[in-house]
Amino acid sequence: MLKLISEWAFPLFLGFIIISSVIKKKDAVSSFCTGAKQGFSAICSVTPNILAIMVASAIFRKSGAMDFFLHYLTPVFRFFYIPKGIAELILLRPVSGSGAMVLLSQIYEAFGADSYEGLLASVICASTETTLYTVMIYFGVTRVKNTKFPLLIGLLTDFIVILLAVAFVNLLLAAS
């Protein structure tokens, strides 16, 4: 049942969009092209960010700095049942969206997309946002100077996501 919902969600979503586009008599192809062009330029504009993160994280890892930090962080992560392999992702996720995508695909390569690490990383990435960036730009258009409270709540909620993700991945996906 759970599997059925998950599997059908995307095909239904896709079908629903196409059908509603046809019913409303919209030009589906030109809509698609407009959106695709926007998506294309969005990725092009974050390519330098992706490059910077990829090089920085490779150096961070290969130089041994990662191991140095992990040595101290692993007991904390173990306390919350978070596997060591996704520690770096959790630290980077609130700060950089493209960086998190890079680490996510590296986790898939290292452990496999259907491994426990892969599933957990997928759920965490999909359920959190680039909290720091979001708070910054949303309050950037206001006169509000004091953003400590919203930032704190945002990061706390990100942490709740991690705990819930561990619980739900174990509950729903560990058996399959």
């Binding site: 998950s6 599997e7 997309a113 759920v123 990100d158």
Partner: peptide, 30 residues
């Protein structure tokens, strides 16, 4: 700051490209 996206399309796509047998399995937990 909470991602409330119903269907995480990008992540499902990345999963599929990484050779996942069932890329969509994360939808309900997410």
């Amino acid at each position: 700051t909470c991602s409330i996206q119903l269907i995480p399309t990008t992540i499902m796509g990345l999963r599929a490209m990484a050779g996942s047998k069932n890329p969509a399995v994360i939808v309900l937990p997410v």
